[in-house]
Amino acid sequence: MRNPLKLVIIAALLLVTVVLTLVTGTFSLSPGDLLDLIMGRAGADVNLVFYEFRMPRVIITILCGAALALSGLILQVISRNPLADPGIIGVNAGSGFGVVLFLMFVSGGGSNNLYALPVMSFIAGLITVLLVFVLSFVRGSFNSNMFILIGIAVAMGVTGFLYVFTSTFDDRQMTMLNQYLAGNIWGDTWAFVVVILPYILVVSVFAWMKINEMAMLNLEDDTLRGLGMNVNVEKVLLIICAAMLSSVAVSVAGAISFIGLIAPHIARLLFKVEMKFVFIGTLGIGALLLSVSDLIGKLLLAPLIIPAGIVVALIGGPYFIYLLMTARKV
């Protein structure tokens, strides 16, 4: 099958998922309602559900899925390790700690200053990754295996001391934290879309401009230096992109793992070595995975909503184990 055709199929699947997400739920919309919406003669309630509740949520889901996937692709390319994932190396834990700090010091009930929450979790996630990054230099050059090891250590350690203030939390705060850690997409209003859309777009375009470097990074560092690439600088720039993408995604969508691991992997299975297609495919598959997970979480045990992060992990975990069994060299 030709590569562009595969991309079209991914886009079509994404479109189907989006439409299904828009019409299903506690307040389900009939085809008639949809027709009314398009003709602009729908009732106020339909308009409200469609434009104020579901539309921004779908957009956020797509954006975050794509951002996490791209972040994973960059990390895998840089570390030359097919098992790298932003969640495994500490972004989620760092952002979670930001949420704890927010609940502790900014808003006890978690109800006011709601926009401070993503900002704090974003900053905490970003600082965590950059810290891991700084610690993984060995004798002046960036060592990607060290990056992964220290990332795992930091993820575990920060996940551990996340709970340091929780003895003072009441039930509501604890529920909020648990929901966050389970990957419940909560930043689903237009305000978040307005901030996040341009941000992710800019970072992704920047990463796109580095696509030739990404394609070459599977060569040895020495070879690349011989070819005239400043390997350290390129890796630093790309890692910062990855950190910015994943921490913003996690800060509005909650702690979601495995998307950054699976999406690039599927993209590589589909598109082999053509980096441009792998890049776009990764974005599409990431968006598809997260929106499908959100849809499944909404429908599976309705009216109970299962956080998208858990659904992703339920799908991604077995895939990860399969990868472990088959990956020849790590």
Partner: peptide, 9 residues
């Protein structure tokens, strides 16, 4: 990595 991934799962 295997341990970290399986734990997350």
């Amino acid at each position: 990595l295997a341990g970290a991934g399986i734990s997350l799962f």
